[in-house]
Design a protein around this nucleic acid. Structure first.
Lengths: 351, 351
DNA sequence: TTGAAAGCGCTAACAA
DNA sequence: TTGTTAGCGCTTTCAA
């Protein structure tokens, strides 16, 4: 069905190669030792004294035969695997889920673990099956992740193993969880504008109730207040959280007399740009704009490139495995908050 | 470290629950039968006649104890696992890799397989380790995927198992491979314009050598020719394949007198839109535009929404596992070509 | 310094 | 209709 671009190790090495899968027994035979010895040198146990000679013979046999340990067998005897399960509700909708997987995968790998990935598309049945399968594979633990920050009902089966919620938190009860610090992010975004001297800063929030909505608003407000700028409710607007929402709210923003706008996300900012351009309003000369999410395809390539605050998805995945593995304390009853870093580009200027 | 939102099954069911992991032996004891019997009813082997009574007792015991088969043990005895490995060179850079994973995962799942995912960031060492790890877990086979369509040097270790290249093909030698049909895609994109009556259609190709570059060009040309429209070399331009490239080429396009533009990808189209808007040129009233890739965040939300041709990443992943599993013939020496479907939106009008 | 042997949880002959 | 038993490939005492 498929062939390697290159041959396998040549056979003329003088050692007989068993017809198919090379086991430890084969190595032992070839090296003239017992399987126990092979096992010992393989895992180089320190308190097992193996002669230099035998050790070498084993090594040679392993190379010659192209032996690979059978992880299935190892896991069976050790009673647990090196798997970490990751169940995601949407792995392809946005690049976000990808980032979580990426972070989790890197960190897991670093500690000798492998990711078992399951996509559930938020289907409860798929979710149950995914978790069951992971449990049956005796995973070290499960990362339960969502593609946008929200509260979730923790599936009962998760209780059979250790788990960490990633980018979500438990509706009720407490569970280890790692989520983005929306408020801090909102504060940073606003400060980006404040720092350049803006005082009348509009905030285009989303219409949908969510931690992002309340968190970013709180951050916006806090930044304003601690900068001594007035918080004016009439400068807070709501729009559908996408390009259309941003596009439709231009007029309103322009009427408000704000010199800068903090958008709930980059997509809103993109729509806003569009509407602004159509009216001949220049960014940032006439009005400054800041986004949120740092959705690369958009933010980095708008004209001018959009200053924004990044959602730390990679970090969420990575932190998730760290707390799962007990490398990091999940202190306190509330979720671990991960910072949202700012990404400065060119959409902000002095008023 | 983490608690379920809900308790585990109550203990007052009259059956003693062993302190920790419930094994088949526990079930056998509780049901008053042998492990063989339990195994038989579990896998409901047809040619094994088990009494209704025993069968029920086993079922009850399983429920009562909350037994879960140990997949590790099952795999060990069967000599092979239900894993399919997926090595990707970039899982987070774009939504594309996510789609491949998604498709592979869905299809694998459908056939009772689980995805083992590894991200290599194109690092050779990471790649070797990832493949080794998969081999050690006795995967059924490996999907080797890239985030953009290209030729690859097939890692030697892949030869130790079955594998399928996804979104890439072997530099030399033949290997099963599944790739997008760039030429067909280019043809479709051009036809979108041709169908509305355009004859002078500009093509903004990428500057970088790739199957996408040559394939889409060939498709463009073929469509033109079979529609009896002249292929004019002076209508083929090159630009960096992103927003900047598209933005910078507007003037040139406008000067060419073309009534429509087929862009190498959606990002280029986005940049083009931008430049067009700035000059007061309307899409599609003054000029029609077609993209490629169907990068949702962009294409669906431009003004007007961009008609484009989709890269079939989901399908690539799914087909990949199908050929891996031998469900689909990988006929012939050349890669399997997957169709690029067109996605019509509103950026095309009559000239 | 090494080997023999038990056993991880499960499946599959083979007996009974 | 069911139980006994021998492995699957490996790790790990325990003896030698």
């Amino acid at each position: 069905m498929a062939e390697p671009s290159d041959g396998v190790a040549p056979d003329g090495d003088g050692i007989e190669r068993p017809s198919h899968p090379v086991t430890m027994k084969d190595v032992a035979r070839a090296a003239g030792v017992s399987v126990a010895t092979v096992s010992l040198v393989l895992n180089n146990k320190k308190n097992a004294r193996i002669g230099e000679d035998a050790r070498r013979r084993v090594r040679d046999a392993i190379d010659a035969l192209g032996y690979r340990p059978n992880a299935l067998a190892q896991n069976l005897v050790n009673g647990s695997s090196r798997f970490i399960g990751l169940v995601a509700d949407a792995i392809a909708t946005t690049p976000f889920a990808g980032q979580i997987i990426h972070g989790a995968q890197d960190e897991a790998w670093r500690h000798g673990y492998v990711l078992l990935v399951a996509n559930t598309e938020a289907d409860e049945r798929a979710e149950r099956e995914a978790i069951a399968m992971m449990l049956e594979h005796k995973v070290r633990g499960i990362l339960y992740s969502t593609w946008y920050h929200r509260a979730v009902a923790v599936p009962v089966a998760l209780g059979e193993t250790e788990f960490v919620l990633v980018n979500c938190f438990a509706e009720r009860g407490r569970s280890s969880a790692v989520v983005p610090d929306e408020e801090q992010g909102g504060r940073r975004a606003t400060e980006l504008l404040l720092a350049r001297g803006h005082r009348r800063i509009a905030f285009v929030n989303t219409t949908t109730e969510s931690p992002a909505r309340s968190g970013r608003l709180a951050g916006y407000r806090a930044a304003l207040e601690s900068a001594g700028a007035p918080f004016d409710e009439r400068l807070v607007f709501e729009a559908q959280p996408d390009q259309d929402g941003g596009f439709e709210i231009v007029e309103t923003i322009l009427d408000s007399g704000a010199s800068a706008v903090f958008c709930h996300n980059d997509r809103v900012a993109m729509g806003l740009y569009d509407g602004l351009h159509q009216r001949g309003v220049r960014v940032p000369a006439d009005i400054s704009v800041v986004g949120f999410d740092n959705q690369e395809v958009i933010a980095a390539h708008l004209h001018p490139p959009l200053s924004t605050v990044a959602l730390p998805h990679y970090e969420l995945g990575a932190r998730g495995v760290r707390v799962l593995l007990g490398l990091e304390e999940s202190v306190g009853p509330s979720p671990i908050l991960v910072e949202c870093p700012v990404v400065e580009r060119e959409s902000v200027a002095a008023p």
